[in-house]
Measured scan of single mutants.
Amino acid sequence: SADYSSLTVVQLKDLLTKRNLSVGGLKNEWVQRLIKDDEES
């Protein structure tokens, strides 16, 4: 899986927004959300 934890907050928020995922919570929660989205898609 991609190394989301190395991305900036701005990059992570951009990815979350593009995938229609929530940008609520902490940075590590966003990373988990993106990883989960990868596994489900």
Rank of each mutant, 00 (worst) to 15 (best):
V31F: 05
L12T: 01
V10D: 15
L7D: 04
L16T: 04
V9R: 07
T8A: 05
E39W: 12
L12S: 01
R33Y: 00
L15F: 04
S5W: 10
L26V: 12
N20H: 11
E39S: 09
V10N: 14
V9F: 03
S5R: 09
S41T: 11
E29G: 03
S6V: 06
Q11V: 08
E40F: 10
L26A: 14
I35R: 08
D14K: 08
L15D: 02
N28D: 15
V9W: 04
S6K: 14
K36G: 07
E29W: 00
V23R: 07
V9H: 11
I35Q: 10
D37T: 04
L12K: 01
T17H: 12
L26P: 11
L16S: 02
Q11D: 08
K18N: 09
V31E: 06
V23C: 10
G24M: 10
I35W: 04
S6D: 12
S22F: 02
L21R: 01
L21W: 00
R19Y: 00
D38Y: 05
E40C: 11
Q32R: 06
L12V: 04
Y4W: 02
V23K: 08
D14Y: 03
S6L: 10
W30K: 06
K13M: 14
S22N: 09
S6Q: 13
K13H: 10
N28E: 15
D37M: 07
A2M: 15
K13R: 12
S5K: 10
W30G: 04
L7M: 15
Y4P: 03
E39K: 10
Y4F: 03
L15C: 09
E39Q: 12
R19V: 04
S1Y: 14
E29L: 00
W30E: 07
G25H: 01
E40L: 15
L26M: 12
Q32V: 09
L15G: 02
W30H: 06
G24C: 15
K27H: 08
R33L: 08
D37R: 04
S41C: 10
V9N: 12
L26F: 12
S5Y: 11
W30Y: 07
D14F: 01
Q32S: 11
L26S: 15
E40Q: 13
G24S: 15
D38I: 07
T8R: 01
Q11S: 02
L7V: 02
T17S: 10
A2E: 12
V23G: 07
S22I: 06
E40R: 13
D38K: 02
Q11L: 05
N28I: 08
W30Q: 10
S6T: 10
L26W: 08
D3S: 05
L26G: 15
E40T: 12
R33H: 05
D3L: 07
R33F: 01
V23E: 08
R19P: 04
D14C: 09
V23T: 15
D14H: 07
N28R: 05
S5T: 12
E40V: 11
